[in-house]
């Protein structure tokens, strides 16, 4: 068991293996993710029941929740990759962070934007300085810092190392920001708007929501693979295996 895991890890670190396998996987993941997103969007927007309190506005949930959840999951996965890169010097982890950062930034932005659009009619405001929104904004800033850092170093390896450090600093910093804003809010201004009001959600709403979340996750998987392949092909364009591969096609 351990041996197979170890083998898998070593294979994962190899560019040619990854390039070959990902090329086979991409079409399936792409079709799956896009059909899931289309199905869940149509279901969520047209066929799921109207919310008793919010009316039709709530339907933005089918975009907002998947975006926010995936933006955080991407960051956590990037911090795992950062640790792997710093400890075992696995080059693929650097490729992973560089490729996923723009995707994460995009979904964080979608999350913030859809949240604001949702917030306006329901709470009467585009923005609230509460812990969740502030930490999402900070998450966005960390994504920007990671993207900006890529061009600061001449050497690819140095850039990957620096980006890994930043990613880990961010993963430590995020809960601290969340906690301190939370604390500041509860003591400073008694919450005039409660965002965390838990409402029970009916099955007819839940199923398309779960489908949309699944769809977005697969979409990130899909775009992640595409971006990683693009990154590998720029890094390895002068290598023998890559030249052989591209001459075959």
């Amino acid at each position: 068991m351990f041996q197979t895991l170890k083998n898998f890890y070593h294979k994962l670190g190899s560019y040619p293996w990854f390039y070959k396998i990902s090329g086979k996987v991409i079409p399936f993941v792409g079709v799956l993710s896009i059909s899931l997103i289309v199905i869940s969007s149509i279901w969520g927007l047209f066929f799921s029941p109207i919310d008793a309190v919010q009316g039709d506005v709530y339907r933005i949930i089918y975009f907002h929740v998947p975006a926010v959840s995936v933006s955080q999951v991407i960051y956590y996965s990037m911090s795992v990759a950062a640790a792997v890169f710093l400890i075992w010097r696995m080059k693929m982890a650097g490729v992973y962070i560089k490729s996923l950062a723009p995707i994460g930034a995009a979904f964080t932005f979608i999350g913030l934007l859809s949240g604001a659009i949702w917030g306006q009619p329901t709470w009467g405001t585009w923005w609230v300085w509460d812990a969740r929104l502030t930490s999402t904004l900070v998450l966005f800033l960390f994504y920007l810092a990671i993207i900006g850092m890529q061009s600061t170093f001449a050497s690819r390896k140095s850039a990957d190392t620096a980006v890994s450090i930043i990613t880990l600093v961010g993963v430590v910093n995020l809960p601290i920001v969340k906690k301190s804003v939370d604390w500041w809010n509860t003591l400073h201004q008694p919450a005039s708007i409660s965002i965390s009001g838990e409402s029970s959600i009916s099955n007819e709403m839940l199923i398309p929501l779960l489908l949309s979340i699944l769809g977005v996750y697969f979409f990130v998987f899909f775009t992640g693979l595409l971006f990683m392949r693009a990154e590998i092909s720029t890094r390895e364009q002068n290598k023998e295996w890559f030249k052989k591969l591209s001459s075959n096609n």
């Binding site: 810092a145 600061t152 920001v177």
Partner: peptide, 13 residues
């Protein structure tokens, strides 16, 4: 680059 300020703000919060 954007990196410096983008790092400073969240850390200092």
């Amino acid at each position: 680059s954007i990196t410096g300020p983008a790092l400073m703000l969240p850390l200092s919060l």
